[in-house]
Nucleic acid binder design. Structure first.
Lengths: 269, 269
DNA sequence: AACGATTTGTTCGTATGTATC
DNA sequence: TGATACATACGAACAAATCGT
């Protein structure tokens, strides 16, 4: 028995999904029924073996289980496409990691009011902001939804000394209408002239699972953008961490001359 | 018992890993030992329950199991950082999705010779290349390693008509020394002036698991770059798909004026 | 509102296989 | 070779969620 039984079952169901015998949204046979389908001759497979196979498909992101209902082939959601700005002018205005067009596309965006905290900088943030030891930083956290669905979370860190130098609005739990970049320029004469993004993907934390309503079983990666912005003298101004669940987000980047994108099909594969 | 036992065990081990009681690389207690650690009073937990807890930690990417040896806290590998080019001149030269500096950083890159095939375009590729129906495309596939570790896979698709018009080297299973962009310009007078990238993250396919040596259990996301390049008239020239395992790759992007990056700490969290 | 049928979730026991040292 | 540790497989019982009657 080179291949274990549960893997054989999983691979067969995998195949049936891929060839379209089981369409997205379709219900799989119940565990009891699968016991019979995959039995050796007259003997039925054990329910636990069938369940092991299904667990494997869950981690592959192919199916999801719903207690009391059944097991279903996952439906892909319509991803929201964010265009990554490569122009410091364009990107700075929006005060976010990406230049989005939520409204333009007939989707309704929703942003929570910032949750503002003062906390000691963790080593990563301290490093990015050029702080030594455990200085305090201001953390501004926001959660974003599109059409009611949790879409991204963002936390921006500013050095505490900005407040001491007069930028007290940093502590306000309100969006700053004029944008943070402009505010810092007016208040402290600090100009944001560039930034560096670091992009990684990883498994979600507990918090992220909760906010994005990712069941503990469904396998969805988190895409993390970390942006450090700099002023004219090369001094870091702020550090922004934005996280996106990969199942409902996509990113686009253009370089050089590119024709406008035609209306695109968003069907599931 | 709101929370099931296996989740309580998993969360506790999760916590012990996060606070550093269990360091990366450290061995967890064996399943037999964990049975006693997490028993209710005198009763031991079932071995299956302990195993369920460990399976959960595996899917969270926190631990890995080795038959005959034990269960270990995963060690993060040193990620390779790719700088995403935003300048069509710079990016085009290297003929890849990213402008890398493998050699400069004392790491030894390794690229397989292209595997060249002629095949009918799948709907996505056809759409990106502006082909109708099931025209043929040339597919050139390469695998990359760094210091012997599988790092990325890349497939580039070209319209078949490029060959008919004289660019026969597209069918050669060799790297084209001068670079494909230059070759197409000389041979067909096609100039690549821009591109559009689409970035997504998803679970690995079976092929990807094999090449990247990702065990069926370890949860690592795949980062996928799809790039369509265009000529001066806005006609798509080629479509490139590059996939990276997220555990050993990271991406950087700069905009505006940014100071040079100082030597960075790459310790595991 | 109550109940039963169906389906997945949790927990335990047990036996045996396979990998490593 | 034996000891240890994880992997597979099966059986069983009860819990919890969902849906229709």
């Amino acid at each position: 028995m080179a291949e274990p039984m549960y893997r054989i079952i999983a691979d067969d169901l995998d195949r049936r999904i891929k060839i379209g015998e089981l369409q997205p949204g379709a219900q799989l046979p119940s565990e009891i029924e699968l016991r019979e389908e995959y039995g050796q001759g007259t003997a039925k497979a054990s329910r636990n073996t069938v369940r092991d196979a299904i667990k494997l498909l869950v981690t592959r992101g192919l199916v999801e289980t719903r207690p009391g209902q059944g097991t279903f082939v996952v439906k892909k959601v319509l991803p929201f496409v964010s265009r990554l700005a490569t122009d410091p002018e364009a990107g700075g205005i929006e005060d976010g990691v990406y230049k989005d067009e939520v409204g333009k596309r007939g989707r309704t965006p929703d942003e929570t009011r910032p949750r503002v905290e003062v906390q000691p900088a963790d080593p990563t943030v301290a490093g990015e902001l050029g702080l030594t030891g455990d200085e305090q930083v201001i953390s501004r956290h926001q959660e974003r939804r599109i059409d009611g669905t949790p879409w991204s979370m963002q936390t921006t860190f500013y050095p505490m000394k900005f407040v001491e130098r007069g930028a007290t609005n940093l502590l306000m739990a309100e969006n700053i209408a004029e944008g943070m970049v402009k505010y810092l320029e007016e208040k402290l004469n600090i100009k944001q002239v560039g930034w560096r993004d670091t992009i990684t993907a990883r498994t979600p934390t507990g918090n992220e699972r909760t906010f994005f309503t990712l069941s503990d079983k469904v396998q969805v990666a988190i895409i993390e953008f970390r942006r450090t912005s700099y002023d004219e003298t090369g001094v870091p101004i702020r550090h922004t961490v934005t996280v996106y669940p990969a199942d409902r987000n996509q990113f686009e980047m253009e370089a050089g001359a590119v024709p406008a994108r035609p209306e695109k099909n968003h069907e599931a594969k």
